[in-house]
Nucleic acid binder design. Structure first.
Lengths: 345, 345
DNA sequence: GCGGTTTACGCAATCGATTGCGCAGTTGTC
DNA sequence: GACAACTGCGCAATCGATTGCGTAAACCGC
């Protein structure tokens, strides 16, 4: 019944001049009235707003964006430089994304998800120039550290989820990955484990820091790192499972695993179980993230909790401060060790 | 080093007329050259494209959108009519969203995530009119069935994730919820269970169909439904846990649970365990979705698998067919029973 | 009742790319 | 050599809202 109003007989969308004509004013006045501009008397404003509502008029965002050079939109971009094939299905990313989306939409901005298909050195520059969004959140440094530095020089509202790196000029927000790695490994060592694997994609800066923490903890306990215990593994797919299986097949002995994500940890535990080993009786395992899986899996995972809601809030807070022209420093958020069955205290 | 080119000394963004001036042609020619328009000879096209690349020029999307009245963007909207407070953090939604995003970005469209804060009857009309996207995917019918019908009359590229409802005129894609409910309940009955709870938010159309399947299966087995066994429960929060706990406290006897999601199922199992009951020994539980949790939890969940990648692909396929002007019918995708520990065969 | 201020609103330029139409200049045809 | 067809490209209108500036009318004080 209301349909005629939403889209009048002509089939043409209602535009501002239509409302202006009906109201007997100019489109300038309509524009100002809808924007609650104080130079338009309240009575007129109300009339026009009522008329607009009645006729189902909504400002054309494309036109507004062009004129104002702003879009009320934040872009969330995922550089998949290192794993071009990977889909946007990593549970940790999705969880972070959900919280980011909540924070952003609370501030009445829209969220544009961009998956850049060809991450050459200029993808970010191109993205920024395309004027599709007012601000940018880059999830994960991947191998794009230099591209990020490049884009950030040319100041822009841009915040990166990731670690603080030495020569970094962009603003990043992330967990204390080093401390997470140290805590996890220290816990394994304190519970008597001595031969501890590291499992994860250490080519990613955030993961590399977790590995540094692992090394630190081992050093602190007066031991030295066996480099053959540092194994590459991807977040998804069978690589973690296969790595552990192969190690066991070769008869290598170890009694603990620090995995760079909960998914990797679970995958490793499955490999242990297939080989007749038991977790935590024979081998303790510590994960990372404290995803939903960690608490529900069997055995429940001891893991390093990342404060995802806090990270999202901080990223968005920094970004909006930057949109206001303020400068912001990078932030590192604390992590905590969550004790469960896979590596008991 | 390339920075100067990305954003020249003036601080002003490079625009098409700049490239035109440098190339010694008009902006019309630049526009056509960049669009690979055949009336521009290939030599000229290459020169101009090279120049544009060299100067880091990218078309201003706001201007293009306005002129062309299209945005190369698909909006994914989540009506949260029924649970206004709920955040976008439901794992099932996020998983579906990830797959949708993959499908859409493969087609070189951007993804706009919209969370409508005030779902009155016209939110969809407003969204459509705002010209922010060329097509729309609505995730979940929630309580917006009529609003969807309203918007769909006025033909538009719009596909809804949800069930086919009787008086529906919009295009929907979803799982066979009825069959899922029937399968789950039938399985419990076949394994000897007789007093089976239903747990879920039956006010949602998709869930209501699962409930219908539950009723059907019970009827098929010559039994009748005890309405006090149909209990409301939300996807998140403690409602499922509390409902089961209260039932046990009141001494109500039952031997099976069909939960409308894996999350609800796990929550129920926790409640059983706290009360000293054991799953599946005392009470069998079947979930819905086959989320990551289902296979990893303890006990591993018997559940109804929804084909999330297939659903996403179908939604996007329908949507793009509609963008081309084709009509599409609603689709219902098959589900399957996945046997695990919580309700063994 | 007059200068000065304020109020209320319209004119027209503007954002930057796209595109229908048309015009030179070139090639082709008989 | 004259006319037609074609090629390559530019002019200027257009998309729809926003906004700086200007002005007519209303108001105000004395």
């Amino acid at each position: 019944m209301e349909l005629e109003k939403v889209r009048p007989k002509s089939g043409r969308a209602v535009k501002m001049t239509d409302i202006a004509r009906i109201a007997g004013v100019s489109s300038s006045t309509v524009s100002r009235a809808l924007a609650d501009h104080p130079t338009i008397p309240e009575a007129t404003r109300n009339t026009i707003q009522a008329l607009a509502r009645e006729h189902g008029y909504v400002v054309n965002r494309a036109a507004r964006n062009l004129r104002q050079s702003q879009t009320q939109t934040i872009a969330v971009a995922v550089p998949l430089g290192h794993e071009r094939e990977q889909l946007i299905s990593d549970p940790f990313f999705l969880r972070l994304f959900g919280h980011l989306a909540d924070e952003i939409s609370q501030r009445r901005y829209d969220i544009l998800l961009v998956r850049e298909p060809s991450p050459d050195a200029h993808w970010l520059g191109r993205l920024v120039q395309s004027q599709r969004a007012d601000g940018f959140i880059i999830v994960g440094q991947s191998d794009q550290h230099q591209a990020l530095n490049l884009a950030a020089r040319d100041y822009r509202p841009l915040v990166v989820f990731g670690s603080e790196l030495p020569d970094q000029i962009y603003c990043s927000v992330g967990s204390d990955n080093f401390e997470g790695g140290r805590l996890a490994t220290d816990h394994l060592l304190r519970s008597g484990r001595r031969r501890i694997l590291f499992l994860g994609p250490a080519e990613l800066p955030q993961i590399d820091l977790r590995l540094d923490g692992y090394r630190q903890a081992i050093g602190d306990h007066g031991l030295s790192v066996d480099e053959s215990f540092v194994l590459p593994a991807h977040f998804t797919g069978p690589s973690a499972h296969d790595a552990v299986r192969d190690l066991l097949a070769r008869g290598v002995e170890f009694d603990g695993i620090f995995a760079a994500s909960d998914g990797i940890a679970l995958s490793a535990i499955r490999a242990l179980e297939s080989a007749g080993m038991r977790c935590p009786d024979d081998i303790s395992v510590v994960g990372f993230d404290d995803s939903d899986l960690a608490s529900q899996s069997h055995p429940a995972l001891t893991t390093i909790r990342q404060d995802v809601p806090g990270i999202a809030a901080t990223i968005v807070d920094h970004l909006f401060r930057r949109l206001e022209g303020e400068g912001t420093y990078s932030s590192t958020l604390p992590v905590s060790l969550i004790l469960r069955e896979s590596a008991p205290g």
